[in-house]
């Protein structure tokens, strides 16, 4: 592990003292605070009518008044930006500044550099999301005055952990780009292109592809419609953004029992009571594993590429 600790310490110091971190944190703070404020306002409005459904505290993060999206949606489209910003110049900027060859000529293992950078970015993401989560929780508590139950706390912690994995995926993708592309601008652009594609276009494309493969009209039998819907969903789940969105819905909405299409006859006789935390986790589990796997794959490719890279200043 020679050299990992110094690299980790320096990278953390860089992240926390950097202007980039300040800007991202300010951005997510503004988004989060306004979303939570709006959510709390609307919860206060109809709290009496909504009493029986419970889980008021969770609504702080998921409810919206239609004008401003809830905090969860903010994370799902700002998260990638945070991840990309933390990693897009991890390796190539050191290479072009000529610091990489100097660092690697010190008696450290080469992987200490990439492990240190990755770990520092994950810790940064974790602290950023945890602090914003606590901040919003505190604000919400002040505004609605309903303390969270243990169940809700568990769900929020799971949500935070999932978000860290999601942001870490984008970070490791951008670290990979920073190894592949020599120019920081190119790697930043490549990361953004993937982000926009995965978040905005991919779900649309999945719909188009499903329409093409399994065409439907008014007279189509229900089996075919079901098939169409399943195909569309499977395709769109290839995008990490979809995985994250579906998983957060399952974790933060205890009423959700399945993420796939469901027939009305299947719900007959079902009690409309919420699932427990562990059952909700079970629903979201494949998605969570998918995101973790994507993150690890990106990291593994980066690791191998970095270890084999020719180290020259020019």
């Amino acid at each position: 592990m020679s050299g990992l600790i110094p690299v980790l310490r320096k990278e953390l110091a860089d992240h926390f003292s950097g202007r980039r971190f300040m800007i991202l944190f300010a951005l997510i703070c503004v988004a989060g605070l306004s979303a939570t404020y709006v959510a709390a306002q609307s919860i206060r409005g109809d709290i009496s009518g909504d009493r029986e459904s419970g889980f008021v505290f969770l609504k702080l993060f998921t409810a919206s008044n239609g004008v401003l999206p809830p905090f969860v949606s903010f994370i799902s489209f700002l998260g990638p930006l945070i991840g990309l910003a933390l990693g897009f110049d991890a390796i190539n900027s050191e290479q072009s500044r000529g610091t990489l060859s100097r660092v690697l000529s010190q008696p450290i293992y080469r992987d200490a550099v990439i492990n240190g950078k990755f770990l520092a970015a994950v810790i940064t993401i974790g602290l950023m999301l945890l602090s914003i989560g606590l901040l919003l929780g505190g604000l919400g508590l002040r505004m609605i005055g309903v303390p969270p139950t243990l169940e809700e706390v568990l769900r929020l912690i799971s949500f935070m952990a999932l978000s860290v994995v999601y942001v870490a995926f984008w970070m490791s993708l951008s670290v990979l780009f920073s190894i592949v592309f020599k120019q920081t601008a190119t790697s930043a652009l490549a990361g953004m292109a993937i982000w926009i594609f995965a978040t905005f276009f991919f779900p649309m494309l999945a719909g188009v592809a499903a329409d093409g493969l399994v065409p439907t009209n008014q007279d189509t039998p229900v089996e075919v419609i079901l098939q169409h819907e399943q195909l569309r969903q499977m395709l769109s789940r290839m995008s990490p953004s979809t995985l994250y969105q579906e998983a957060t819905v399952a974790i933060l909405t205890p009423g959700i029992r399945t993420l796939g299409p469901i027939m009305l006859e299947q719900t007959r006789g079902m009690l409309p009571n919420p699932l427990s935390w562990s059952q909700s986790m079970l629903v979201a589990w494949p998605h969570v594993i998918g995101l973790v796997a994507l993150t690890l794959i990106c990291f593994a490719i980066s690791y191998v590429k970095f270890m084999r890279q020719e180290i020259r200043a020019t």
């Binding site: 860089d14 500044r97 100097r102």
Partner: peptide, 30 residues
Amino acid sequence: KRIVGYLPDNVGFYDDLTARENLRYTASLN
């Protein structure tokens, strides 16, 4: 690498750190 000091061609330093901090980082890596 423990016994060889190397000054690369086009040596680069972390521009946002001071001279002392840059050297301290190298020392810690060693």
